[in-house]
Simulated assay, not measured.
Amino acid sequence: MTNFMLSVHHVPGTAPYASEDDMKAAFEAVGAFNERLLSDGVLVHVNALLPDAVVVTADSRSEGPAHEGAQLGGFWIIDVADRAAAEDLAREASAACGQPIEVRQFEG
């Protein structure tokens, strides 16, 4: 089995859903998706991130994201047979949350 991260990115200052009802429906669909991943035994970890960010380097600390543009909003870590399986689950995740999903394989 291979670990992959399926990630959701949001553009700061924009609403990811057209309405509160759309958001609630997406949260319910994502909850069902998460339960299926858990019951299938492929879910390693899932979580959403709060919007606040701090950038830390060896020399400094600053408030805000490390770069402009889309920011990581949440992710799933899954353990599946191969990239094709990860991409299949990413399609389902995208349908559930209504957002594009980035698929990245862990090194090693």
Rank of each mutant, 00 (worst) to 15 (best):
P16H: 08
Y17C: 02
A18K: 11
A18E: 08
E20A: 15
D21I: 06
D21K: 14
D21S: 15
D21P: 01
M23G: 08
K24T: 03
A25S: 09
A25I: 01
A26V: 06
F27D: 02
F27Q: 09
V30C: 11
G31K: 06
G31C: 08
N34I: 02
R36W: 08
R36Q: 12
L38F: 15
D40G: 08
V42G: 00
L43I: 03
V44H: 06
H45C: 09
H45V: 10
H45N: 12
V46G: 08
N47P: 03
N47I: 00
N47M: 12
A48E: 11
A48K: 07
L50F: 10
L50Q: 14
D52P: 00
D52I: 09
D52C: 08
V54C: 07
V55Y: 12
V56Y: 08
T57D: 07
T57L: 06
A58P: 02
D59F: 10
S60C: 09
S62I: 13
S62E: 11
E63A: 15
P65S: 15
H67K: 14
E68A: 15
E68S: 12
G69N: 03
Q71N: 05
Q71M: 10
L72G: 01
L72K: 01
G73D: 05
F75M: 07
W76L: 04
I77Y: 05
I77R: 06
V80A: 10
A81V: 07
D82L: 10
D82Y: 11
R83V: 10
R83G: 04
R83F: 13
A84N: 08
A85D: 06
A85Y: 05
A86V: 06
E87A: 10
A90G: 03
A90W: 01
R91N: 09
E92Q: 15
E92A: 14
